[in-house]
Amino acid sequence: MNHSYVLAAGTNTDEVARETIFWILCFASIGAALAMILVRRAVHCAMMLAVVMLALATMYAMQGAPFLAFVQIIVYTGAVLMLFLFVIMLIGISSADSVTETIKGQRMAAGLVAIGFFVILILGVGHAALGPATRPTAANGTNNLSGLATLIFTTYVFPFEVTGALLITAALGAMVLAHRERTAPRPTQRQLAARRLESGHMAPDPSPGVYALHDAADRPALLPDGTTSELSVSTVLAPRGVAEEPPSVPPQKEPEAITAESGHEPAPSGRADT
């Protein structure tokens, strides 16, 4: 069985199946693309892009490019998009775009030009003599992969080498850009320990609260007197306001005197627990 052309061989049922798949994928990808440009949170945009990429991978497979389909999934969706997600996590998890547009007329103009561009391209495409899908020629070799390999390493060997160099350059560039110069010498372990002693806060931060109902990093831990401990939630989460309030617990009246004494050691750094 010729696997490379398994989808190109078309019988009637194949044809219908292919059409159905195409139209489903078409709407899915268009919908995902529209959602991508409309949703507020960056993570949701990344997810929508992933949907589009996967749809496109399937379409590559349908058109007799299985290698490309898998490369799309592995490299594009799996590596590039994940890289996007890493960066979103590092930078902008909470930076949601506001709805109002700062530049006057930008949206209107963008929409108009986009529609115009679309019309022009569709006209061009419609006018072009795009024939039907043809059988692959004999020069393509026995299967898709070896055909691609032949092309890459013969006709397109120079672009191949150049893109190799480009990749190396990109890696170097990323290293240079992400590099942070130390302005002070690296503190040794001894210095770190001394710093800890002076801060008055020698013990590790408490873990986030773990309750029967909830178990998450954004829940603060409860102190003995019923108040939450800010130290237990990551400093990244707390300013975002996503740290949730613990379920209300009625404060106990009797150990008030003890609580007042034991729970309120004033910290010299000013980080009060209550």
Partner: peptide, 23 residues
């Protein structure tokens, strides 16, 4: 797929590589 040869796929492959580096 229209032309029947694989040049378009090779180009798409290169586009992917370059896009990755660019990202």
């Amino acid at each position: 797929s229209m032309h029947g040869n694989l040049d378009g796929q090779v180009i798409a492959f290169f586009v992917m590589v370059v896009a990755a580096a660019e990202v």
